[in-house]
Simulated assay, not measured.
Amino acid sequence: MIRRVVCLRHGQTKWNVEQRFQGHSDIPLDRTGVAQAARAASLLAALKPTAIVSSDLQRAYDTGAALGRLTGLGVQVDKELRERGGGAWEGLTREEIKAGWPAEFEAWEAPGGEVVADVADRVSEAIRRWVARLPDDGLLVVASHGAALRLGIARLLGLPEELWSALGGLGNCSWSVLEEGRRGWRLLEHNAGTLPEPVSSDDRPEAETDR
């Protein structure tokens, strides 16, 4: 029994371009993001997914729905796959955050926002729950968010928290592939689907600027 998960980050939004912290704010895909979702769908449809599940935020749902239209699969919704909550930072640019909260910016801990370990737990648990519904050799596509997916992947792989930054950020409509084996999860691909480029996400700054 080998089951796989494709962790697909949503397409570009206006706030991505402006480098605003999105978090739980429900921001739609922009025109570029819609095109990115269509391109990703055309590639991922060839993998013949068994199921698609999405965050309840429209940028992720619309990304998953592009794949659903090609495969004929419905998109299930799970709010536990939301992006990391940004508290007081949601809607603010990187420069505004750095100017207003210099210490918190360095730690990337938003006042009133979610703790990274909590995000890792909820996202990884949600993925495990949906994977448990797959048949043998099933393939689940999870349409979610950059920081949420990176943290969830790190938890599934059993990495200690001090090594989570070893996983780079996910570009818009890029994906990572995980496989469930007898000894746990392993990472088959990471940030696939595009040539390397800067990542604009709610993730830690160093996860976005490292190439």
Results as ranks from 00 to 15, higher is better:
R94A: 10
R94C: 05
R94I: 08
R94E: 05
E95V: 03
E96K: 14
E96Y: 11
I97H: 01
K98V: 03
A99W: 00
G100R: 13
P102K: 01
E104N: 10
E104H: 09
F105G: 00
F105I: 02
F105C: 00
A107H: 02
E109T: 01
A110Q: 08
A110D: 01
A110S: 13
P111F: 04
G112Y: 06
G113H: 03
E114D: 05
E114G: 01
E114A: 04
E114R: 01
E114Q: 03
V116F: 06
V116W: 03
V116G: 00
A117F: 00
D118F: 05
D118S: 11
A120T: 04
A120I: 03
A120H: 03
D121N: 07
R122E: 09
R122L: 11
R122Y: 14
V123T: 05
V123P: 12
V123L: 06
S124W: 07
S124R: 08
A126Y: 14
A126L: 12
A126F: 14
I127L: 12
I127K: 10
I127G: 09
R128I: 07
R128H: 15
W130R: 15
W130N: 11
W130Y: 13
V131M: 09
V131F: 02
V131C: 12
V131N: 07
A132Y: 06
R133T: 15
L134W: 06
P135Y: 01
D136F: 04
D137V: 12
L140Q: 10
L140M: 14
L140C: 08
V141D: 11
V141I: 13
V141Q: 07
A143M: 12
A143D: 14
S144E: 09
S144F: 08
G146D: 06
G146K: 01
A148I: 02
A148V: 06
L149K: 00
R150F: 05
R150K: 14
R150C: 13
L151P: 00
L151H: 04
G152W: 04
G152Q: 07
I153P: 00
I153R: 10
I153M: 11
A154P: 06
L156E: 02
L157F: 11
L157V: 06
L159W: 12
P160A: 09
P160F: 14
E162Y: 09
S165K: 03
A166R: 15
L167P: 00
G168M: 07
G168L: 15
G168A: 14
L170C: 04
G171F: 00
G171V: 01
N172F: 05
S174R: 13
S174T: 15
W175T: 09
V177E: 15
V177Q: 08
L178Q: 06
L178K: 03
E180C: 10
E180V: 10
G181M: 11
G181F: 13
G181H: 10
R182I: 12
R182Q: 15
R183V: 09
G184L: 05
W185E: 10
L187N: 12
L187H: 13
L188G: 05
N191V: 04
N191M: 05
N191G: 05
A192E: 02
A192R: 12
G193H: 05
G193Y: 07
G193M: 09
G193F: 11
